[in-house]
């Protein structure tokens, strides 16, 4: 596997830059090399290739070839007729013509017609392997369906693509580290008999345009605090149901989320109208919601039963005309 050796050689020499300080610890070096190797399977040739390809038509002369190669410092150029690759001319062909003094020769009489190509949707590793097994400096890239020439790839393109992908992966990881705290770690760093954090949200009654927004904010904050989607899923389902209840039935209320080690509790407090029969309200399908609420997809009498099913603890107290206190917790 020549190609593979070449790839590994490259990534190792990146870590080895002159002197002693730059050397990465062995485990990290292996990881980086593995990552490069993995990327060469994941990335497609079209992501690495140069899309701007200079080409010549087959009826041009070797004088034209000389000009293009000289002006752009290329060592070869694809020959194309109506979008289709028909051959390739290299600097070696040019040297032979110069020596023979036949610079007026048409490209079509000189060019190599059996061109080794790659398809744009092939993994990068195919290009790397081909560079290993052929001595060529470049491979024309074709579109698999139309067979038209759409790019060209060199070793330099591959190195550039791998490095920029590694760089963006590195940046993504760094920025993730930056704005992610760990709630658990924060609590552990603040010794006390009881540590908690409170996030309070006010929900406006009757504001259907914004209904759902506060639960969504709570979810975003808990994710920022380091909780996983799975850990808080049931809590946020319950919060969204409770928020809808505040919007549908009350003139507004507060949702107070209390975060403590191992447990998140949400208290939902409003000033009325209160629930006349809690037992009835807890029955799945029982609802007093008006039709327009049902048209929003809520108010089907599943809210409170859903909250009960989704949480580890739930308390509900209500007094007619005074208001309702709902409290639920999820262990997380």
């Amino acid at each position: 596997m020549k190609g593979k050796t070449w790839l590994f050689g490259t990534s190792e020499s990146v870590g080895k830059t002159k002197g002693k300080t730059q050397r990465l610890p062995r485990s990290q070096k292996t990881k980086e090399v593995q990552k490069t190797h993995q990327l060469s399977y994941e990335l497609k040739i079209k992501e690495a290739m140069s899309k701007k390809v200079l080409t010549l038509k087959p009826n041009r002369t070797m004088m034209d070839v000389r000009k293009v190669l000289k002006d752009h410092r290329f060592t070869g150029i694809p020959i194309v007729e109506s979008g289709r690759l028909v051959g390739i001319v290299s600097i070696e062909d040019l040297i032979n013509c110069l020596r023979a003094g036949s610079m007026e020769t048409r490209v079509k009489d000189i060019m190599t017609t059996k061109v080794v190509t790659l398809f744009s949707d092939e993994p990068l590793i195919h290009a790397i392997n081909k560079f290993g097994s052929y001595g060529f400096g470049r491979f024309p890239v074709l579109d698999r369906d139309s067979k038209k020439l759409i790019g060209i790839i060199t070793k330099q393109d591959i190195i550039r693509c791998l490095l920029s992908t590694l760089q963006s992966l590195y940046h993504a990881r760094e920025s993730k580290k930056g704005n992610r705290y760990q709630a658990a770690r924060l609590f552990a760093d603040l010794p006390s008999d009881w540590t908690t954090m409170i996030l309070k949200y006010h929900v406006k009654g009757g504001d259907f345009g914004k209904a759902g927004e506060k639960s969504d904010q709570l979810k975003g904050n808990l994710l920022k605090l380091g909780y996983s989607d799975e850990q808080i899923r049931r809590l946020i389902i319950s919060a969204l149901e409770a928020e809808m209840n505040l919007v549908i039935f009350t003139s507004g209320g507060d949702m107070i989320a209390q975060i403590e080690p191992g447990k998140i509790t949400v208290k939902v407090i409003d000033n009325g109208p209160g629930i006349p029969d809690i037992e009835l309200a807890m029955q799945p399908g029982y609802s007093t919601a008006p039709d327009f609420v049902r048209e929003l997809g809520f108010g089907a009498g599943m809210g409170l039963p859903n909250i009960k099913n989704c949480t580890d603890e739930m308390k509900l107290e209500s007094r007619l005309g005074k208001g309702t206190n709902l409290e639920f917790s999820v262990y997380a």
Partner: peptide, 17 residues
């Protein structure tokens, strides 16, 4: 698959993954 088009559908979908 739903026939509802309000913002609440998106909040619900986002919560449910």
């Amino acid at each position: 698959l739903t026939g509802l088009t309000s913002r609440q559908v998106i909040y619900t979908a986002s919560t449910a993954g």
